[in-house]
């Protein structure tokens, strides 16, 4: 951790999480600067999803510190006010989209700005329509999520998160539940977001995308960060033996 010049937006220090007898996260130290795109890779069950879910408090941790944009999260979920502030500043896109099936696409996007930020309907709709337009689904605004393809649903989920004007975006395997032909459209939308300077932490198996978009790639193994480096270094010259064997398995086909 040498880059202490600009204040990190995420600061995790010695974070440990236990799940029963399972030690899910081990001494996680991670700092993310504003505008940085960090990709987290690792085998399934390595703890990479748990790691980013700790950042917005969807998972509790037992030891250590997590600070997001100046708000400190305490162990064991003992920090409701800071947590509330963090969640309004941090957007998340889930593997299973998790759109609200009883609301139209537009209402999915306007709900949180109206209820959390207190915007009036007209403002929320204006912003919502602009965001839907940006992810290429403005013509589907009155439809319901079940009427859209998986790729479209995930783009709505992205617009829904962006409607809260987050300072940080978390992506938890955003393309893993998609049919192959729809992965590209979601990655394109994320690529554009990265280009605009959004701070992003992305858990993904899309190594080509990681190489192209990431400023830094983190390899996590059995709950531990084993290696972190710019993508070119990590993918071409992995130092750790575990990283090498993981990459040889995922890059082979």
């Amino acid at each position: 951790m040498t880059e202490s010049v600009s204040n990190p937006i995420v600061r995790m220090a010695k974070v440990n999480k236990h799940f029963g007898s399972l030690h899910v996260l081990k001494d996680i130290d991670l700092q993310v600067k504003p505008g940085e795109v960090v990709v987290v890779i690792g085998a399934s069950g390595s703890g990479k999803s748990t790691l980013i879910r700790c950042i917005n408090g969807l998972e509790e941790f037992q030891e250590g510190h997590i600070e997001v944009d100046g708000n400190e999260l305490l162990p064991d979920g003992r920090s409701s006010k800071a947590l509330q502030r963090i969640r309004t500043e941090v957007g998340m896109v889930f593997q299973q989209f998790n759109l609200f099936p009883h609301l139209s696409v537009l209402d999915n996007v306007t709900l949180a700005p109206m209820k959390v930020r207190g915007w009036n309907r007209a403002d929320a709709v204006k912003t919502g329509e602009r965001l839907l337009d940006r992810v290429g689904i403005s013509d589907q605004a009155i439809k319901y999520p079940s009427q859209l393809s998986g790729g479209q649903q995930q783009r709505v989920a992205l617009a829904r998160a962006l409607a809260m004007e987050p300072r940080l975006m978390l992506f938890d395997e955003p393309t893993s539940a998609l049919d192959p032909e729809m992965i590209g459209e979601v990655l394109d939308a994320m690529r554009e977001l990265a280009r605009e300077g959004m701070t992003m932490i992305i858990v993904t198996h899309e190594m080509g995308f990681a190489r192209e978009v990431a400023d830094r790639v983190i390899f996590i193994h059995q709950g531990q960060i084993l290696e972190e480096a710019p993508p070119a270094d990590l993918f071409d010259n992995p130092r750790h033996e575990r990283t090498q064997s993981f990459l040889s398995r995922v890059l082979k086909h």
Binding site: N56, L58, T88, N98, A112, A161, M164
Partner: peptide
């Protein structure tokens, strides 16, 4: 109701 529904709501800042 799937757990992800609640998580999506909370992640958007809803109480």
């Amino acid at each position: 109701i799937e757990r992800g529904q609640r998580e999506a709501g909370l992640s958007l800042g809803l109480s």
